[in-house]
Design a protein around this nucleic acid. Structure first.
Lengths: 244, 244
DNA sequence: CGTTGCTTTGATGCCCGTCAATGATTGTGG
DNA sequence: CCACAATCATTGACGGGCATCAAAGCAACG
C-alpha cells in the first residue's frame, strides 16, 4: 500500500513520471530534453505568436489545433459564469497542449507571458498517430501524464490546507528546476495565478509565503524569485508531517 | 467563450460526453448501453469478485490488470499518510478502470459494495490496441473522458462552496439516471464517501443535504435515496446563480 | 515623477471543520 | 422475533482558517 502525493512529485512511482510532471509547472531550463517521442511532429507545424494574456483557445471551442510551446508560459483554466477561475495546469517551453480526442477543448488556454508556439492541425496529428504506433503511444503517454498530474492536483485542492498547498506548489517548481537548498527558484506566474491554481485567494497565498519567509524557510529577493533555505522542512510541511 | 461546468454535466459540449461522464458516478440502470467500442475485450477477460471495502489495487502498484465492472460500485481514491482521503471517481456497472499507460496505478481502487468484475491482463489489452486501431481509439477516448471529468472535479474542489459541491454532486447523479422533477434518486455511497469525493467533512455534507430538505428542494425517504423536487432551482444553486 | 498594476499587510466576519452527543439502521446471536 | 451491538447519519456548540474588504507598499512604465 502506498500513499498519495503530498507534492506533485513526492510520490511519483518513477523518475520518469516525476520529471514529466515537474515540466508541467514553472519555467523552462534551457537544458531540458526536448524529445518526448514526438519529434516526428517537427515537420508539420507552423509558428504562431501570442501576446501576454491572449486567449489561445477557449473551453468548448472545436479542437482544430494543438500546440507546442517554443518560449513563454501558458495557463490552462476553467471559468465559471460569475468569474471564478480554476487553473488546471501551467505549461512551459517544450510542453505540448491542446491535444484533444473528444472534438472540443476541455479547457481555456491563455498566454501567461508573450508566447511563441508551433501549431499542429489536429487532422495531421491524428493521421500521424494512426500511421505510426510510436507516435500513438507517445500521445497516450502524454494524456496519461496529464491525468496523473490532475489527479494529484485533486488531492491538493480537496484535502490540503492553504499552507500545505503553497508549499507543495513551491516544491513542485523547485523539483522541476532541480533547485537545491540555497538555490534560487524562478516564479514565472503572478500571485493571482498561483491562487487560482491552488483554489485560494491572492491574500492567503501572500500570507502563506510571508510566513515561510518569517520562519526562515525561504527568502524573497523579489516578487518573481524565491530562495529555498530549508528543503527538508518544506517537504515535511507539504506532507502534513508534524504541526502546521 | 464558454464557461466551466458547475455540475459534472452542465457544460458538456456534447450529449455523448454528458452521458459518459455521468456514467462515472452513481448507480447503474440496467438499460445502459454496454458497448463503448471495446466489445472486442469480451473474449480475453476472467471473472473476479471482491467483498465490500476490499482493495482491488493500490496507488503505486504495478499495473498488471484492468477491470470492467459487472455489478457493484467501485471508488478510486488517493490516501495521504495521515489518513486524509480524496476520492477521484465512482465507477458503476459497465465502467472500465485501472487502464494504465505508465506502468503503475495512479489511484487506489476499492469495492464500495460487493463487486463482480472482469479482469483483463494489461499485456492483452495493449496487444489488442496495437492490432486494432478502433480499440486504440476507444482506449484513448476512455482516457480523455477520465481527464475531462477530473478537470471538472478540479473546479468543484477549488472554486465551489460546500452547498454548491453537494448540489453539483446530486445533479450529476440525477443527470446520469435521467431523474426528472419528482423522481427518486439512488445514492449508492455513504455520506463519508460523498464527503471524501467533495473535499468536505461528513457533517458538512449532512447539513447541506438537510438544508436542501428544509428548503423543499429535495425529500429524503431514506439514507440511500433522495427525491428531486426542484431541479431547476438546484441547477441555479450549483452554478452559483442568485444567492446561496 | 506620476501613473498603473501587482503585492503585501491589517481588520473583521463567516463558512466550514472539530468535538461531542443523539438518533436511525443494519446485522447478529439467543 | 427480539435484544443488543455495531455502524452510519444527524444535529448542536464552538472555534479556527480562510475569504472579504480596505489601505498601503512597491516595481515597471510612460
Amino acid at each position: 500500500m502506498s500513499y498519495a502525493a503530498q507534492t506533485l512529485q513526492s510520490s511519483a512511482p518513477q523518475a520518469f513520471m516525476r520529471d514529466r510532471a515537474a515540466q508541467r509547472i514553472g519555467t523552462s531550463p534551457s537544458e531540458r530534453a526536448p524529445d518526448d517521442g514526438l519529434s516526428a511532429l517537427q515537420t508539420i507545424g507552423t509558428v504562431v505568436r501570442f501576446n501576454r494574456n491572449a486567449e489561445i483557445f477557449s473551453d468548448g471551442d472545436e479542437a482544430c489545433y494543438s500546440y507546442r510551446i517554443v518560449s513563454g508560459t501558458v495557463r490552462l483554466c476553467k471559468l465559471m459564469m460569475d468569474g471564478r477561475r480554476q487553473i488546471a495546469q501551467f505549461l512551459v517551453t517544450g510542453d505540448l497542449f491542446g491535444v484533444e480526442w473528444l472534438d472540443t477543448h476541455s479547457l481555456t488556454a491563455e498566454a501567461l507571458s508573450d508566447v511563441v508556439a508551433v501549431r499542429y492541425a489536429r487532422a495531421h496529428l491524428e493521421r500521424l498517430g494512426e500511421e505510426r504506433n510510436d507516435v500513438q503511444r507517445s500521445l497516450m503517454a502524454l494524456l496519461s501524464r496529464d491525468l496523473w498530474a490532475t489527479q494529484n492536483h485533486l488531492v491538493t485542492l480537496g484535502r490540503q490546507t492553504a499552507k500545505e498547498r503553497v508549499v507543495s506548489f513551491l516544491l513542485a517548481l523547485a523539483e522541476r528546476n532541480g533547485t537545491k537548498n540555497g538555490g534560487v527558484l524562478d516564479i514565472p506566474m503572478g500571485r493571482q495565478d498561483i491562487a487560482d491554481y491552488l483554489g485560494l485567494t491572492i491574500e492567503t497565498v501572500c500570507r502563506a509565503i510571508t510566513e515561510l519567509k518569517r520562519r526562515r524557510l525561504i527568502d524573497i529577493p523579489n516578487r518573481s524569485q524565491i530562495v529555498i533555505r530549508a528543503l527538508a522542512r518544506l517537504r515535511e510541511i507539504a506532507t502534513g508531517d508534524f504541526e502546521q
